[in-house]
Amino acid sequence: MAVAPYATPVEKAWYYTFRVICGLIFFFLIMPILVIIPLGFNPVPFFTYPMEGFSWRWYGEIFGDSPISILWQRSMVNSVVVAICATLLATILGTLAALGLTRADFPGKPAVMAILISPIMVPIVVIAVGMFYFYAQVGLVSTLSGIILAHTTLGVPFVVITVSATLQGFDHNLVRAGAILGANPVRVFRKVTLPIITPGVVSGSLFAFAASWDEIVVVLFLASTEQHTVPRRMWSGIRELLSPTIIAAATMLIIISILLMFTMEWLRRRSERMRGLTPS
């Protein structure tokens, strides 16, 4: 899109106005995230600019050895354990299911697909309340396993969607080519199928990881203090007294999000290049 040489002054004015409007919308999207990061380094517990200096004080509250710090650190361990376990489970189950979904048609396939996808669509509070009610009866409330199972559920649709999409784009002639070139089925799978679908599986698992890493509502219902994750700790903090420690924790979450995002973009562009969508 560029201003055409024959554009009238009105068109030119509109062109620049449009750009400014878009700039403002992007500003709206990014500004809140960027503005709060420095506040975590404010030496005083206020959320105002200009800042009064620079300090690691609030990060110290998380990484120190006061009772509060211990809680924060435990919540980090919980978050990591839950996210990793849930991601692994979701990736394995979701990838297998995606393989099955693309392999053959069978009656009721759309319905099955709808069920596999529904955890993204059903309101999270309904899910959390249902799990709370049911898990209480089987002793899974206030256990890390309960939260891991719940987060697996929430992450699995992402894996199913991304891996199915990858498999649908997969050219089965490549498997034939591998075979006729003399590679046995195991070798074909290792050298051809796996490398091609891996980016899809990894993207799916990154989504699943992010879904677990950010999740708060289910944890709100299923976890007692022992199982608190980082978002759950933040929640308590926000509800009690909004302190810059929360901002420090939020900043760390943002950094992880950025890492996830760049990995994801890198994977996406790599696979697009591979398919020749964006010749370089």
Binding site: D171, N173, R176, A177, G178, P195, M274
Partner: peptide, 9 residues
């Protein structure tokens, strides 16, 4: 093959 089936990776 008709679409060549070259390994894209």
């Amino acid at each position: 093959f008709q679409n060549y089936a070259l390994f894209p990776h």
